[in-house]
Design a protein around this nucleic acid. Sequence first.
DNA 1: CTGCATCTGTCAGCGTCCCGTCAGATTGGT
DNA 2: ACCAATCTGACGGGACGCTGACAGATGCAG
Lengths: 220, 220
Amino acid sequence: MRALLVEDDDRIAGNVRRALETVGLSVEHVHSGEAAWFEGGTQSYDLIILDLGLPDLDGLTVLKRWRGEGIETPVLVLTARGTWTERVEGIDAGADDYLPKPFRMEELIARARALIRRAGGRGGARHALGHLSVDLNQMTVAVQGIPVTMTPLEFRLISYLTIHRNRVVPATELLEHLYGDDDKKEANALEAIIARLRRKLGGSAIGTRRGFGYFLRGIA
Amino acid sequence: MRALLVEDDDRIAGNVRRALETVGLSVEHVHSGEAAWFEGGTQSYDLIILDLGLPDLDGLTVLKRWRGEGIETPVLVLTARGTWTERVEGIDAGADDYLPKPFRMEELIARARALIRRAGGRGGARHALGHLSVDLNQMTVAVQGIPVTMTPLEFRLISYLTIHRNRVVPATELLEHLYGDDDKKEANALEAIIARLRRKLGGSAIGTRRGFGYFLRGIA
DNA sequence: CTGCATCTGTCAGCGTCCCGTCAGATTGGT
DNA sequence: ACCAATCTGACGGGACGCTGACAGATGCAG
């Protein structure tokens, strides 16, 4: 379940990304209209979150182009100014839903879920790979069917790795995800959590790429 | 058991919400016709309370669109002016019942109940898990068949957990549900209610996921 | 109006568990 | 083989959640 986030403001983007990821979406983020136009046109997404106020190519233009090309991905439009005309424009251009800033993250999530559901993509908050299964709703993790209790940090870490299962996640990114970038912890804190996770999940669940980061592998 | 409340006046909306919640309904609230149109079309509700006097899209239009789409959810229409013609219009558009402002909350609740019951919503109003049974219509809770008396807050909490039984509900969400986000209570208030609930229901009914929130489990 | 009962928010104390830190072992790359 | 990166076990401070007690608020009865 992948989402494309088009937003030039990094602060907002960070929040949105975190919110979406907690409900099990894997989020790709681009800052500009051009990049969005390219990403959305070449990759397959289950949902696109589109901010209208972009530096280069206008969001509405991008949206119209997509629709013109027959791309049917559900699009949720964000905009600063919530005027009536703009809303109509957005709907006319092919937006599936519309959300004026500022908005509450819960609302964004609710609407995102609704869009995905309507599009027929069943919101799968349940991931399984190999002998490992992660349920983002119940916040449970099971190895070979038997449940394993997780502490908050451990769960957030395994969730993040699960959502980004297909790539190596840099340690810095994990640290940023677990603690707001402000908190300064010894780098060792992450390693400690990884160690505890490995003990619970079995040693081979989490792999290390020395100098880069960590990745999840199905347990063989 | 979920209700959608479409009402632009926040004062009225607050009262209605509280009233509905005391009878065990989980209430979603939108302010505009557009939002209502979207919410009602994408989510599944057991009841919709629709105010006609909306700023953007007229309530009647929304209602007609829903019916046109085959959405059969019972709709209770509220309106400021109770003229005869308007009532006919409302019924014609597909409303199931009609209530002129001002009205007494008791009457609203009575009609809401009637609509849900008529729609066969009886099926969803009674939940049973393990030795615990929760009846949202009668506002009763029973453990192993013997009824337990609940205070209002306790009942709203157990209702909310029952409705969202399949996931871990974050403490913040519970706080927001019990008190409007405006009220700022010490976080401990929630814990106090949970403790009282546990004493009544037996310790194992409500589970804690430290750092996340609470969840309901059938009593084994 | 007064007294009683109930509900519920606040507080303080306590136990449990989380997790950051440290120190030493171990691994992997060159 | 050497060095840096990573791993791991142990430990302790502190966050988190639970509970009992209390008091203000509210409602009801007399």
